[in-house]
Design a protein around this nucleic acid. Sequence first.
RNA 1: GUGGGCGUAGCUCAGUUGGUUAGAGCGCCAGGUUGUGGUCCUGGAGGUCGCGGGUUCGAUCCCCGUCGCUCACCCCA
Length: 428
Amino acid sequence: MSDTSTTFQAPIGTHDVLGPESGQWENLIACFADFAYRYGFSLAITPMFEDVGVFNRGIGQNSEVAKKEMYVFEDRGRRLFALRPEGTAPIVRAFVQHQPTTPWKAWYVTPAFRYERPQAGRYRQHHQLGVEVLGTDDPAVDVEVITLAWRFYAAIGLKSVRLLVNSMGHDECRGAYVAILRDHLEANSSMLCDEHQKVWRENPLRVLDCKKASCIEVTSRGPMLPDHLCDDCRGHFDAVLEGLKSLGIEASLNPRLVRGFDYYTRTTFEFVADALDGAQNAIGGGGRYDKLAEQLGGKPTSGIGFGSGIERLLLARAAENDEPLRLVNRTLDVFVVDTTGEDVATVLVDALRAAGLACDRAYDRRSMKSQMKVADKSGARFALLVGPQELAAGEVTIRDLRSDNFGQAQQKAGRDDVVAVIANLLTK
RNA sequence: GUGGGCGUAGCUCAGUUGGUUAGAGCGCCAGGUUGUGGUCCUGGAGGUCGCGGGUUCGAUCCCCGUCGCUCACCCCA
């Protein structure tokens, strides 16, 4: 236990995100927060773990995630918890618990945990950002949520995104459809792929998104969900499609789009990035869940939301764009180089920061050359030099690190004027 | 859960058909005459060659195990 010779590393399927890569994350999250704000959402922070029931009843006990991917653990009080495998169920649980006035619009960024073998674009801990709206089934909300995602993807520079939509109908029309589908599968069960020969009866919808040719052939000759919607659901879906069209958002109907969680009703959608290949090209998805609040013990409340994987967004973006995201400014204004042998830097840096400037400094009383190298690498716009001469004269030397002109790249300023002088230089 | 590839300095990798002090580039640190970065030059630090066991006179190199990384299947973000 106390063997200090062994080292530790991040658990399987998890990653440390450090600079400069973390700068991409900052940018992405800041951009999303900005979008959420502009669309009228407020941030919701809920626990990383919940009673397992939240997920079993929410995403469905038969879903792949609930069956074999949840991080379930018992705490010291013998309560059974699960690390959240997704973002929606906890938000809805919070909604049911606190009953905020509706419509309630919440956004989130959170880690999500799934116990599975990691591979490209798939991890045991990944991160999602998303939004949820509870308390209305107005198709305009469906359109708004999808639009937010669509515009956000564009804002971060993704170009190869396609939007797939479908409608799952409500309980009754989906139930009727599933019965018809089941009959069709039964009649053709011998032609299904090995895996679905076993499970088509329990989960007929899953067969729809099987990629095996045999299953595709069977289902393509069978009934499709959108053709079996009741008038209400059909009308709702049409309104969503029209809304998207009116905004110039191109959606392609995909009757096979059956998402992994059981809580979906009516509108479902998925965003696919063609820059990523095959197995992990879904960068985001979501849909309506008009029964979820009830399933979690609340009053009947409609809801819709979407979630997007941060890692995949960044992967997709890197695949089609060499330039890193630079939506928020994270460059240093000033780097203080102190060679007085005393510690003038501490005071200077404090004054600059108090004035709102981004500022760093060297430590350990290194040589001027060494400190200048660090200043250069820091990316700061200006170096502030204080040596014995400046100290005696009550001055500092301000050097423009971006200038190629070594001779004229610097000027003196009085100690008391530094902040004002630099602030002024920065505006140029 | 199943299968493939890989594991040598901080990073990217070379290398030894098993044989004395294991290499490069980048990065890092220090210098290049007395206060100034980004180029260049010189020098330096840094590795129990993932870990454990086996074969051998001898293993970083061969064998077994183990841990980890990676990719794929399933499914998803």
